[in-house]
Simulated assay, not measured.
Amino acid sequence: MKQWEKTLISPGCTIEEAIATLDRVAVRIVMIVDGHRQLLGTLTDGDVRRALLKQCPLNTPVHQIMCTTPRTAERDWGTDRILSVMEKYSLLQLPVLDEQRRVIGLQTLHDLLNKPRLDNPVFLMAGGFGTRLRPLTQHCPKPLLKVGEKPILEIILERFISAGFHRFFISTHYMPEMIREHFGDGSQWGVEIRYVHEEQPLGTGGALGLLPQDEIDMPLFLMNGDLLTTLNFLNLLDFHEGNGAVATMCVREYEYTVPYGVVESEGHRIRSMVEKPVHKFFINAGIYLLSPELVKSVRPGTHIDMPTLLEQQIAQQHHVNMFPVHEYWLDIGRMEDFQRAQQEFSSL
């Protein structure tokens, strides 16, 4: 059982039972839920003390003294947003709810400020030519183009570091010396950075064959080095580990509006007409979590892109899951994307 699940109690529990739970779980809060785990209220040790000062009997049901309008977080909130709410309202804990207001977690200030150290390797792809961003990439690799005051790849690196990751590999091809010079061995960030170099472009999947595969013993993050996102990497890791797959691909919902009225027919008869219909698709977001077995299946020198590699796994009846990205996401592939990134960076 996850630690936060031990904080769940029913509205009929007494103050005395709530105190016992508070002492046992040591997170200074219990969450009162119904039979479907929908949140009804919260009770902190402060609430209990106030009830005792009012001389409420210990057999009083907690629903009589609980806070019925607690602050809560949503499933896709990142660490920065959670910390901001905690600071604004002087909170030590924040229940996490899904869309049906069911409790799915509990964030505590102590845990957020004492970040875990995660050993999962992170593989950042930084070998592309960035041809659609020329002339900016004529003398600078795309991952080193600055958004605000920092290169794109440095922003990605620091987001992983803030989540607790410290083992990094960077794949290079175009102007590799500039990337190596900027990031070095990672010591200035307190992490380890190692490099693999593609003499010839191998594709996002083929570069996996250059990794020291005997060292890949945990699920590996693979991410394109030209993305800006506030994706919660820990949520992605939890999802991947909890859903048994050789790979998890992050996807983004994409809408396309047909600029004309669409006519549906049967033979020469019109059956219906839809004016400028909107079609929705999931597109590849360029972020993956890969099992060690999948990483090790790629032989050195193999040229293959990630979509093809995953299609092969699906054809072999292996499970490949998708993880929708609802957070901010921007692929900086074109000049207009780069300009948009400059405008939106301050709000990230």
Results as ranks from 00 to 15, higher is better:
173 H>N: 14
146 K>P: 02
161 I>R: 09
110 H>P: 03
71 R>E: 14
57 P>S: 14
36 H>S: 13
166 H>S: 14
197 H>P: 08
56 C>K: 08
71 R>G: 02
45 D>Q: 07
140 C>E: 13
166 H>I: 06
239 F>N: 03
156 I>V: 08
218 M>R: 15
154 E>F: 06
17 E>Q: 15
327 E>K: 03
150 K>P: 05
29 I>C: 06
37 R>K: 11
177 E>F: 02
237 L>Q: 02
153 L>K: 01
242 G>I: 05
98 D>M: 10
296 K>L: 02
268 H>Q: 12
35 G>V: 02
181 E>T: 10
288 Y>T: 05
50 R>N: 09
88 K>F: 15
308 T>H: 11
123 F>G: 00
247 A>D: 10
320 V>R: 00
124 L>I: 15
270 I>Y: 06
335 M>C: 04
195 Y>C: 07
5 E>P: 03
278 V>K: 13
288 Y>Q: 06
102 R>C: 10
85 V>T: 12
76 D>V: 06
270 I>A: 04
343 Q>V: 10
286 G>D: 03
47 D>Y: 07
259 P>E: 09
7 T>D: 06
293 E>D: 14
120 N>V: 01
283 I>Q: 14
107 Q>I: 05
224 N>R: 00
138 Q>S: 11
39 L>H: 02
341 A>D: 01
63 H>P: 02
22 L>F: 04
205 G>R: 01
110 H>M: 13
164 G>P: 12
116 P>N: 15
188 Q>M: 08
86 M>R: 04
339 Q>L: 14
306 M>K: 01
144 L>I: 09
147 V>N: 00
116 P>R: 11
212 P>R: 03
286 G>M: 03
129 F>M: 07
